[in-house]
């Protein structure tokens, strides 16, 4: 499986964010998108996830499931946690697991991020770090080949960062793809880097 971006152009609010962008991520590879604030890291991830339309260029996932679109094979982990405070931790995860496609949601996701003990509590009582962990549990609960992570380590303590790194390594080892936007290291040993410069 390969994610290919060729000559991508992104225009938001009338301003050209980037143009002529090429990248290539193979199975088991992680691409870290870096660049200063406003360089378009988040826009690129949102473009791959299908939330922002491309103003030019081509995005394709080769050898993926031919019946599914690119966004339908991707997990998007953004700045917002997409949690409902009045639902319990388990209900939140169950909903996303069912909605995003798993037939029978299990408790593995919660256990994997260390939230098994608070499964029955309303999500309103979680701290920012716990909310982030709960979002990450979604990636485990539903199998999708491409992970799009927008600054995944923000709000996470060291232990949680290591947990996430472990999950990412397992995902890559299983032939998955990761595209992450980050300012610093994300805890993976060898990654490709894509540096976004300001458009001329």
């Amino acid at each position: 499986m390969r994610l290919l971006g060729t000559q991508l152009v992104c225009v938001r609010g009338g301003r050209q964010v980037f143009a002529g962008l090429d990248f290539d991520v193979g199975a088991g590879e992680a691409l870290v998108v870096t660049g200063r604030n406003g360089a378009g890291k988040s826009s690129l991830l949102r473009m791959i996830a299908g939330f922002v339309r491309t103003a030019g260029g081509l995005l394709e996932l080769r050898h993926g499931d031919p019946e599914l679109t690119l966004p339908e094979q991707a997990h998007y982990l953004g700045h917002q946690d997409a949690l409902k405070p009045s639902l319990s931790v388990a209900e939140n995860l169950d909903f996303w697991a069912r909605y995003l496609g798993a037939e029978a949601p299990g408790r593995d996701g919660l256990e994997a991020v260390g939230l098994g003990a608070v499964a029955a509590l309303p999500a309103a009582y979680l701290s920012a770090g716990q909310r982030r962990r709960l979002s990450i549990a979604r990636l485990v609960a539903v199998q999708r080949p491409l992970w799009l992570l927008d600054e995944p380590t923000s709000a996470l303590d060291r232990a949680a960062q290591e947990t996430l790194a472990g999950l990412m390594r397992a995902h890559l080892a299983g032939g998955g793809l990761i595209v992450a936007a980050a300012h610093g290291p994300i805890g993976l040993a060898d990654t490709k880097e894509l540096r976004l410069e300001e458009a001329p």
């Binding site: 939230l115 003990a117 608070v118 309303p122 009582y125 979680l126 701290s127 770090g129 303590d157």
Partner: peptide
């Protein structure tokens, strides 16, 4: 009590 339980669970620090 539920809030306390959430605070003492792993990963509560941010």
């Amino acid at each position: 009590l539920m809030m306390m339980q959430a605070q003492t669970a792993p990963g509560s620090g941010s």
